[in-house]
Design a protein around this nucleic acid. Structure first.
Lengths: 398, 398
DNA sequence: TTGTAAGCGTTATCAC
DNA sequence: GTGATAACGCTTACAA
């Protein structure tokens, strides 16, 4: 017999105890913990099953299933009885059991370094708005930028039967992650990345954005434009550098390699490299900061030196941020719609899920936009350096 | 026979097609969509099962299970054979199937209005860092502030067999949400909210924070302090009002009810009410803005009127934000650690899960902190209004 | 049109 | 110690 205790479960009004905050907590570790340990005394609330519904409705188990799955060959009165029983018991089909019978889990994983990055938060919301409408639920996890954790998460999503994954991998070339990914058993979409794997990808047009911004500076007359960035190991970094170089070529302006610093996205790197650049024998008249966190460090270094923006130094940042908008002066920025990026990623994944493994991997590009604020001006007439005065001509690009 | 195709699945290198961005997309709807529709041709990659592992290892199915669950009564050579087969096939236990056998799902749901709110993002990260270490995975969903969607999500997490939920409900008193919650069948922790339900809750000490800030203004000599806020329908709003009132009482200062505006958290409300307050017969000399989004509108109204902060008007905001930090002048703020809040919520949920239904519902309070910036000063000697000069005495609270 | 039963991938309870 | 085997809650042929 399968009869259970009565429903519904009553809610008791509980008293509240006021605790003073306890805030001790060891730092996050890499391990996901014993993936699915034995749970000693898993107190599970007694939930009704389809069998209970069938019994209450006086129908067979199969009929309950047919009703929830909208199989047309169910007589109206039978359907009504089942529906009534469902409502009475508050029964909802168990997704795990449905999945066991070959149904898709409708779970999509999402891995990024840290959800506190507002860009990721927007991407998640964009993806969620698309996916939730199709009955998918998002499982999100932070990798904290650790490939080992990414691997663990990839395995975890496998165990958890995810139908697909949206992934902003930390290091495109990490062999372990690549290997895990290629055997993951579920399709994935790369965010702002590119790999030699059969995967869709979605990214912003950083190439075009950076080219546009660089050309703008060149047209203002700048001839020594510095670049501070990170990420040699991902598509974003490569695209940005490409745009920077292309703009110089197109303008016929020689590019001084000593003005390019692209080893890290860290704030301190921005601080240090800006100091070095400003101390350069022939310092740059404009600075392209490609990385949100870098900007803080860059601004600190500029202020420390007492350099005036934009009179002595023009500044452009990518991507846009509150800091860029609210700084004094407001910083011109290369921006893109992160929400749209997430939305496109979700749509691409859905398409892949619809079309199956024969699907042709696709890359979707989201446009970037150059937002002109108060941080750009023509270069100062004479470079602060004693030498080189001929360089500061004001001609727009030839 | 249960023999499958061979593993592992090889990864083919795919070519990439470059599509120009397509950005059409209907607006988000409330419906979660047909919760778990029939998926017409769910292409599932053939995954190995424990049975395959057993066969390859030349052992029985049960032994495979014993090995993954670390049952001690397995001989070493048997264990080795199974382990080898597992590795060869890349097999991982199917979490859904494990759950079917009574194991906890180790899924925790998280509902908030919009993940793009940086406070929620931090809370999620805090919760994730605690939960992931115990093998739990977070399912996150936005309600967009719609109770109907909250109800749908509560049901969804039930279907998806969540072990528990962390919830920042939109309207504490919504009957439908209350009813769904009380029959959810899984425990939940309320974030920054309070309800007459058997639930744990975690919140910041807005009462104390607001009291502290108000007292500070009173000690500066302010006697007409205005309050712009929203959320009469949740604990945060009530706590803040309480702190505001208490500080006045403690200082023996009468409180003018016409200076209290607390109907909405919307930017436009902040804009409009600030205009009205500044046009007041006896305008306030200080303004407490309790709500992140309000601040934008408030600042706009103040600038539009050409009022100088802090010379003519002192300003304090809750909670802290980039805008508060970067505005000119920087705005003093009441802040709290949202990451800690999420962490505490997760720990409370874990405790509840450990202790079972007999657990005593607990409220955890996270401290707030008053960050003094450049937006506060003593009130101007004479109020701009022609009347009332006696009111602007400078005595600290008696 | 509806009831019956096999089976999804595990775990747990039996025997052996 | 290890091998069968019966569940778990559901879907889906197949019978009736």
């Amino acid at each position: 017999m399968n009869m259970r205790e009565t429903f519904p479960f009553t809610a008791r009004i509980g008293m509240r105890a006021l605790l003073l905050s306890r805030m001790t907590q060891p730092p996050p570790s890499v391990a996901i913990g014993p993936p699915l340990q034995r749970s000693p005394s898993t107190e599970r609330v007694v939930r009704p099953t389809a069998r209970d519904v069938a019994q209450l409705a006086g129908m067979a188990l199969g009929t309950v299933s047919r009703v929830v799955n909208d199989v047309p060959t169910v007589r109206q009165d039978a359907r009504d009885k089942v529906l009534a029983a469902m409502a009475e018991l508050g029964w909802k089909p168990n997704a795990a059991a449905q999945h066991m019978r070959g149904r898709a889990s409708r779970i999509v994983g999402f891995i990024f370094s840290d959800i506190r990055n507002p860009l990721y938060a927007s991407m998640i919301k964009g993806a969620e708005d698309v996916l939730s409408r199709q009955g998918y639920t998002l499982m999100v996890s932070s990798s904290d930028g650790l490939p080992e954790r990414e691997i663990a998460l990839l395995d975890l999503f496998g165990q958890r039967q995810a139908d697909g994954l949206i992934f902003a991998i930390s290091q495109e070339s990490h062999a372990g992650v690549q290997a895990t990914l290629s055997q993951a058993g579920y399709p994935f979409i790369l965010l702002e990345r590119e790999m030699a794997l059969r995967a869709g990808s979605v990214g912003a047009d950083h190439d075009g954005g950076t080219r546009h911004a660089t050309r703008y500076l060149l047209e203002l007359g700048h001839r020594r434009i510095a670049l501070v960035s990170g990420g040699q190991d991902n598509r974003v970094g490569r695209d940005r550098l490409q745009g920077f170089v292309d703009a110089h070529h197109a303008a016929g302006v020689a590019l001084d390699p000593s003005l390019i610093r692209h080893e890290s996205f860290a704030e301190e790197y921005g601080f240090r490299q800006t100091q070095l650049l400003l101390d350069h024998a022939i310092p740059p008249t404009a600075l392209l900061v490609l990385g949100q966190h870098l900007l803080r460090g860059v601004l600190r270094a500029i202020r420390l030196k007492g350099i005036a923006i934009p009179q002595q130094l023009s500044l452009i940042v990518s991507n846009d941020s509150e800091l860029a908008q609210l700084a004094t002066p407001a910083i011109s920025a290369i921006r893109y719609d992160a929400y749209a990026l997430g939305r496109e990623a979700a749509q691409l994944l859905l398409q892949r899920l619809r079309e199956g493994p024969d699907w042709t991997p696709t890359r979707i590009e989201v446009p970037t936009e150059f937002v002109l604020r108060d941080s750009c001006a023509a270069p100062p007439r004479a470079t602060p350096s004693p030498s080189a005065t001929a360089a500061s001509s004001r001609t727009p690009r030839p």
